[in-house]
Nucleic acid binder design. Structure first.
Lengths: 193, 193
DNA sequence: GTCTATAACCCGATAGAC
DNA sequence: GTCTATCGGGTTATAGAC
């Protein structure tokens, strides 16, 4: 992406476009897709609703532009290393999850496009985790790890469930470490159900 | 609730009311609150939209009637027993979670009323779990248990994340048992973070 | 580049006929 | 008890003025 010379029309356009994207991200995050209106986004960005349409074409494209990012970092190494990498990612997510990801999570249960994005993200994630688990039921274990991450992040950032919002990331990671280890390492002493 | 004599108007009314409630539950569950329309519910129930309004007053009241149930069973006993009770509840939820609960979960991130219901449910749940954990950070541990349950149930029933939809409840419960035990029992060997 | 005006549509809710 | 007709308001999206 080139940087047009300051003061030019193209540069002005990029500025307002960025302002619109910021406002949209914030609103998609807090209100979800359905309750977010083009009018409100435009108003928050200090421009007209028609301009938003002119730039992004449709509400759906605006949502895609806001949420299309996050290319998922690769995991690797021994199961223990992977476990620690996941915990590190979780710690990051607990302190400051990016607005794009949270916007997807907010709408993943009610907006089909967001559902798809969330599913694809979770699937990539699961595949990586699954690959580094030496067990026959690696897929199920990886899916559980993914589900736990989703549950914790959603509870803390979106539902704001007291007990998790107050705790520090280190505290949460410390409590979750045994869980993750029991899932990523094949437990040598499984209880019979 | 009395059962009016068959063929009477009151009995006819209860029948159509039940049909509307069923259709509404199904639609709230699959589409969420915002995307569910009175018209569509009425059509699915084989009646007119005006009749739905006449019975339930508003869309919001209809939603409450659909989701107001589920009085949360009590937990108790030793930490190990509580852990097993939670796993039993999870197993139930994995095989057949009631539509009312799923309807709340579906909209909990985007509809304020559903958010509140979900928060209150999770809070009651957390309080019970917290009470039976002998640890200083019991609240955080209970919140993590609650978050994990939400993540697993949402992933399986709502997101339909492959790895979890295919697995049997017993398999999931078996894999999750060490996690739950490490959270409900104070771990004697905590890793320092 | 930005904004105004409006078209076209769907919603929840109301009033009243049958 | 059930349905028809409609009101009033909100939305996305379009066409065109400045």
């Amino acid at each position: 992406m080139v940087t047009p010379r300051p003061g030019s029309r193209a540069e002005q356009r990029l500025r307002t476009e960025a302002r619109i994207l910021d406002a949209a991200a914030q609103m998609f995050l807090t209100a979800g897709y359905e309750r977010t209106t083009i009018r409100a986004v435009a108003s928050a960005a200090g421009v007209d609703a028609g301009l938003v349409m002119h730039y992004f074409g449709s509400k759906q494209e605006l949502f895609q532009r806001v949420t299309h990012a996050s290319p998922a970092q690769p995991l690797g190494g021994t199961p223990e290393q992977v476990s620690e990498q996941i915990l590190a990612i979780l710690a990051d997510s607990l302190t400051s999850e990016p607005v794009q990801s949270l916007a997807v999570l907010r709408s993943m249960l009610t907006h089909p496009e967001a559902t798809q994005v969330a599913q694809e993200g979770a699937a990539r994630y699961r595949a990586q985790i699954s690959r580094s688990i030496p067990a026959a039921d690696a897929d199920t274990r990886a899916a559980l790890v993914s589900a736990i991450m989703i549950g914790v992040i959603v509870s803390r950032h979106l539902l704001k469930n007291g007990g998790l919002t107050d705790a520090t990331p280190q505290q949460i990671v410390g409590l979750l470490r045994p869980c993750l280890r029991s899932l990523t390492l094949a437990d040598p002493s499984p209880s019979s159900s």
